[in-house]
Design a protein around this nucleic acid. Structure first.
Lengths: 193, 193
DNA sequence: TGACTGACTCTAATTACCAGAGTTAGCTTT
DNA sequence: AAAGCTAACTCTGGTAATTAGAGTCAGTCA
């Protein structure tokens, strides 16, 4: 298993990264989401080696992000395509591209990849909005708090975040401030989102 | 270098993942963005080993995502905090959390982490909108096209994406459809966003 | 017959990762 | 004064994953 502890980790961030697997798998998902379907195309596009590509496709399939379909029988030939669940990762790709653009990693010529609205042909972006009203939320108004699924470790984590201007954390009550981390060395039995 | 080719890869997705490094580094960034600052807290929170934590903090610092500050002199003590550039990764964390919630990895109890607007206390979400007008864009209207920074490899990649309902790709012109991938095995000299 | 395609698997060398012990420098307790 | 503690690491040895590249297999095409 790649880097043990990621699966039972009670944090969506860890869980999603765990489901993807690693950077190679993410690149492969990128290509699949862009419409590439064949093994050899995937290999050429991502530059990954055979062993790794084969392994990652297996993992992605097991994790329900990708589906393997036979498209020809005489010599058996297969292709891969993202599942509905896998297609949710488009949001991740958009975020990654947007961050890359902010960092202007694309030098000065602009982004290599441009997400658009196909109806209008206009460029799109991700915006943080109020979950109910869809009103825009400013970047410096963003905060975090433990959700209903937060476990002891997540609560501890958030309790360590001081209320600085540059920190994201918000605490409803400033309960007991210190105390050692709960479950200090047992990550295998944790269950956070 | 971890997994060689990621740096000169002309794709924002690869570039951002390359700058982060790996899953451990991402978890560390998560904790830093939540306000954790001290080495030992980071270790306990993420469950990473000393060697890996130390190495990742160094890499993140080199990549300009994290800053190492001395906060005490007599015994020299250091803390870590995200830079402005590192704080851009909040978008990534939001995307990851939102995907995790969609997958309801958090079982039934809700997400462990809840992004909010600190003014109002309301929950927030990421929405795809038109870059100029900020009008919402439906999920199935999302497309991609090569940007100005696209290199030969990116263009090839997008040319392989058939115009299926489940594919994301849009092509302005349906130029030459086939042809072998350009630069088929030279990933080190590529330069796409 | 010979070349070729697609989807892999195999091998050997390199590289990364893990748990856990050890280090350094000063402070605090007995 | 000796023992223990804290913070921020580094080191070690063993296990596991990754790499480049060669090889395989079933069938098609010229």
């Amino acid at each position: 298993m790649r880097s043990k502890g990621f699966e039972g980790m009670a944090c969506s961030i860890a869980a999603v990264m765990g489901a993807i697997g690693d950077r190679w798998a993410l690149l492969i998902m990128r290509d699949l989401l862009l419409g590439i379907r064949r093994y050899d195309d995937l290999r050429q596009s991502s530059g990954v080696t055979n062993a790794t590509l084969s392994d990652r496709l297996k993992l992605l399939t097991e994790n329900g992000l990708v589906e393997r379909r036979q498209y020809q029988t005489r010599p058996e030939r297969f292709e891969y395509q993202p599942t509905e669940k896998g297609r949710d990762l488009n949001l991740l790709m958009q975020a990654l591209v947007q961050i890359g653009d902010q960092w202007n990693l694309s030098s000065l010529e602009g982004p290599p990849l441009d997400f658009i609205d196909r109806r209008t042909g206009h460029g799109v972006k991700l915006m943080t909005v109020d979950r109910e009203t869809s009103e825009p939320v400013e970047r410096d108004q963003l905060g975090v708090r433990p959700g209903r699924g937060a476990d002891a470790l997540m609560t501890w984590r958030l309790s360590r975040g001081p209320e600085r201007a540059d920190a994201l954390v918000i605490r409803s009550d400033r309960s007991q401030d210190a105390g050692p981390p709960p479950v200090p060395d047992d990550h295998s039995s944790a269950s956070n989102p």
